[in-house]
Amino acid sequence: MRIPLPDLIGSAQRQPRPFAVPVMILSIVVVITLAAPLLNLPDPRTAVAEAHLRPPSLEHPFGTDALGRDVLSRTLWGGQQTLLVALLGAGIAILPGLVLGVMAGYNQGWTDRLLMAGMDILLAFPNLLLGLATIALIGPGRFSIALAVGLAGLPAYARVARAAVLMVRSAPYIDAAHAIGVPPGQILLFHILPNIRESLFSFAGVSLSWAILNGAALAFLGFGGDPAIPDWGAMLNEGRAVFRLAPWIALPPGIAITLTIFAANRLADAWQDTAGHRI
């Protein structure tokens, strides 16, 4: 089957994607996970040995895991942990990353080189080592993971911000602004930042997914702290060990992660589409 290449301008000018869908999904995910304490669910940590690996039933709508814990309860409670670590990690990556990246891209020269060398130093640090170091310094647990994830993502965000600034920096309207004597701070705030907004939002969406996945990877490698505290990444890994005997264990956290990442990305898309439309 041959699909004709669409009109490039036409495809660019179609309706922006709606905010409603991703906002709705994210709200549902957040509300449900936050509501976990109110839902009268079994304790997510209570293992009932006799009831392990039970398929979904009325008593356990999502079945039980290898230790006989309620998968529904663990999925909801686990959401709180996962989202918290991801938001913290993404926040640690995005805020300083943005500032450093924009500074580097705008100033160029030695500021740029030094800042980027600093970022390279951080990037050159293997994730694993960041995990180990944060755990050794502030103890195992979700904050260590969030910090490690954030530090790992920070240089990436800085690099993307810098590249975006570089793209618009040499545009004629910036030159023009310089020529008519607009102060650099204003150029940055009113001329450069608005024009790179979509790249930044887009990458923030990616950062959130990264934070979820990097956290999961660190937990997989044994840096997770208390294994009893539920978390989607850890649940996926527990489910992996028995995925042929008990596929129901990995499915709910898997769907939850996919939905969250889908929504985060769509939200970024929607931002970007409105930004594109505005021009």
Binding site: V48, L67, P227, A228
Partner: peptide, 26 residues
């Protein structure tokens, strides 16, 4: 060992003892 620890944690809660599990890398 992590699974064993979690099961013990649940069993001991029945007699009223809480357990904090600290898993280390090696």
């Amino acid at each position: 060992i992590p699974q064993v620890a979690q099961l013990i944690q649940s069993q001991w809660r029945q007699v009223g003892i809480d357990v904090e599990i600290r898993q280390v890398a090696g």
